[in-house]
Design a protein around this nucleic acid. Sequence first.
DNA 1: TAGATTGTTAATCGATTAACAATC
DNA 2: TAGATTGTTAATCGATTAACAATC
Lengths: 210, 210
Amino acid sequence: MFEKIPKPVARRLAIYYRVLKEQSKNGAETISSSSLGRMLDLKPSQIRKDLSYFGGFGKRGTGYNVIDLMKSIEKILGIDKRWNVLIIGAGKIGRALANYPGLIQDGFTIKGIVDVSEKKIGKTIDEHLTIEDVAEMEKIIRERKIEIGVLCVPSDVAQKVLNSVIQYGIKGIVNFVPKRLKAPKDVMIEDVQISLSFKALSFRMVNSER
Amino acid sequence: MFEKIPKPVARRLAIYYRVLKEQSKNGAETISSSSLGRMLDLKPSQIRKDLSYFGGFGKRGTGYNVIDLMKSIEKILGIDKRWNVLIIGAGKIGRALANYPGLIQDGFTIKGIVDVSEKKIGKTIDEHLTIEDVAEMEKIIRERKIEIGVLCVPSDVAQKVLNSVIQYGIKGIVNFVPKRLKAPKDVMIEDVQISLSFKALSFRMVNSER
DNA sequence: TAGATTGTTAATCGATTAACAATC
DNA sequence: TAGATTGTTAATCGATTAACAATC
């Protein structure tokens, strides 16, 4: 029924979305695949193909209506609704994400942040989120209808913590832990591995003559 | 002369490196592509192929010597030396990275963090890094021989800041700004786009039936 | 109608994988 | 020698791109 969608497409849609949002603020009414391509250094045909997996959003001769396409991509990406998010681990990264405006703006609501450390529990982040006890996690997940967990715990406990949150019903994980985690296939994991990006950069800097 | 190396290889090497480091701590002496593959959910042939771009590191019948392979990958990735890093922008993300242990351990030395805000300049992060004035950036980059800049500034000034640091001689950028930045091709940019990962997760959660 | 731009097909390019001879 | 595992080739798979008819 559906044509298979290449993996890189989702991320590119999110990139198109970002540009469209910006363009709509600037008052642009329409945009063509070639102008979008120029802004993003992508081939126009790739943009058209990416969109074509989900429908025909453009008008021949004119291009795409900025607002309409933005709304359509919002639906495709599932950010036309808000997702309830729990941050697990109040270390540096966890706390930095707690009020990350990029997330809050685009459909993600941080409903809580938990940690094990006595010292951290009870502390407030930017006057509106209080670090809670990880022991309360099950209750928090169920009562606040948490759908996405952001894993920012030490590597050695990551798999254990993941197993718990999955038991409590979470279906999506953004994983900041530098470790391959196992989960049932109905649980989606997206890895954000900052230190891999640094190493990839190092590699490119060292091997750039090739 | 050299066979072209597929883009995903650098990141996988960094992943192999992580596992090898772990394994060497556990006292493992050798590892085979199939056991590594099992741990990482990768095909053994992919691992062997990835390594083969850079040499023959294994011994037939036995596998790879853990320490030797680790050292070899360190060289390939360019993390056998230390890189001097400047964090540009002392917002949440910038400050979180300032003492990120994952970086410090694996070859990256944070030599400074700068910001424009009067309020932030002079403040100390974790008792060992002081936020400096972005006006000092040129001096800092030249004197401390900064090679890598970590861009954590607001989107609207990102390209301008990037242009400056490139002028000051920086050759590598880890970009946390959600924007496509332009740079001469001898300057390497690695994008870390956290909000794209959240959107990609949302996409997968919504479209998982497909 | 003429010009612009889409949506889609088919060709190309790039990455992964299976298979197996080489060899420890 | 027999068993294990590499390094490498060739086949397969997946993603991108060019090309163009359709159509606004």
